[in-house]
Amino acid sequence: MDTRELTAPPSFPALYARSVLSRPSRRLDFPRTRVVLRDQRFDSGRLTEFCRLTGFPVRDEVPLPFPQVVAFGLQVDLMVREPFPFSVVGVLHVQQEFEQTRALHAGERFDLSVRAVGMLPHRRGATVELRTELTVAGERAPVWTGRSSYLARGVDWPGIPRDAARLDAPAGEGTVWRVPADLGRRYGAVSGDVNPVHVSPLTARAFGFRRAIAHGMWTASRALADLGGPALGAARYEVDFGSPLYLPSTVRHVARREADGWSSAVRSRDGEKVHLATRLRREVTAPRGR
């Protein structure tokens, strides 16, 4: 596997401009390149804004989803600069998994790496799976690992599409969330994810959505914050993204205690649509009301 090292975090405007101008590869393959960014620290201002926007308390412990926010630029860099058979503009986040072996702390120095580990046919195109690893200075094994699955619609990938196993989505009354119309722009400013489907009704309609949709990562992070805040030790958090959460919306977060953690779902106000289902494995306290 080739390694391409970055000397600084990628520039999102430059990457998105490049993605608009470049053409997808015609090869039915994906690149075996690892993108690496070394000797980084968490930006305290960005971390604070992320916590305030998603509902985590501002503490020294880093919320379990936050390294994905930091690594997202590397993911975009990989998908834009390497010869993938799709354009990154308009891709949809369909599944996510985070796992950490211990709590991460805001002052720690770390290396990040991202690589593609596979592509699969999907009934609406193809999915690409990216693996992200965070290694803390002085430690050999990754402390934090992320697995991201993105859907590139319209890509004709060989093979028979198979539906991935889905997480159970609890039903019930739950906690009401009121999601504002400007959330996509606000979360995009923190995360750097300014995909057109999130930032404006006009640009979202160009990609087949009637209004702008919330970032899946915001929804997943807000759900985890409701399940007790930062992961203070070893933890695994799995997410299935479902129906688009249009902005603005009123939704319900329904949580169910399990023997080894929690299952939860973000549902439409009437409970009929599932926007997101999650599974958290660790010892946590009861969900906080909102």
Score class of each variant (00 low, 15 high):
100 Q>I: 05
29 D>L: 02
12 F>Y: 15
238 E>H: 06
267 R>I: 10
73 G>F: 02
150 Y>G: 06
254 V>R: 04
155 V>M: 02
203 T>W: 12
116 A>I: 11
284 V>F: 09
196 P>A: 01
92 L>P: 01
54 T>M: 08
264 S>T: 15
178 R>Y: 02
123 R>L: 05
39 D>G: 13
231 A>N: 07
97 E>N: 03
157 W>V: 05
192 G>I: 06
276 L>T: 00
242 G>S: 07
33 T>N: 03
114 V>N: 00
252 R>I: 07
106 A>H: 09
100 Q>C: 06
275 H>A: 13
289 G>P: 11
12 F>V: 13
252 R>K: 08
88 V>H: 00
124 R>D: 10
57 P>I: 00
48 T>A: 15
217 M>Y: 04
195 N>H: 01
113 S>M: 06
118 G>E: 06
51 C>D: 02
140 R>V: 13
220 A>G: 14
39 D>M: 02
63 P>E: 14
98 F>Y: 15
176 V>T: 14
215 H>P: 13
156 D>T: 15
40 Q>M: 12
7 T>A: 15
144 W>H: 11
212 A>L: 02
33 T>M: 00
25 S>C: 11
226 D>G: 15
241 F>D: 09
223 A>V: 08
218 W>N: 07
123 R>F: 06
55 G>L: 03
174 G>M: 04
225 A>P: 04
49 E>K: 14
178 R>P: 01
278 T>D: 03
274 V>A: 10
168 D>R: 12
165 A>R: 11
272 E>H: 14
269 R>P: 03
60 D>W: 02
132 T>Y: 00
139 E>A: 13
112 L>M: 14
201 P>D: 14
232 L>G: 14
157 W>E: 05
213 I>N: 07
137 A>P: 02
263 S>H: 11
223 A>R: 00
117 V>Q: 10
235 A>H: 09
96 Q>F: 10
158 P>H: 13
249 S>K: 01
110 F>Q: 09
245 L>G: 08
137 A>Y: 00
287 P>I: 00
20 V>E: 06
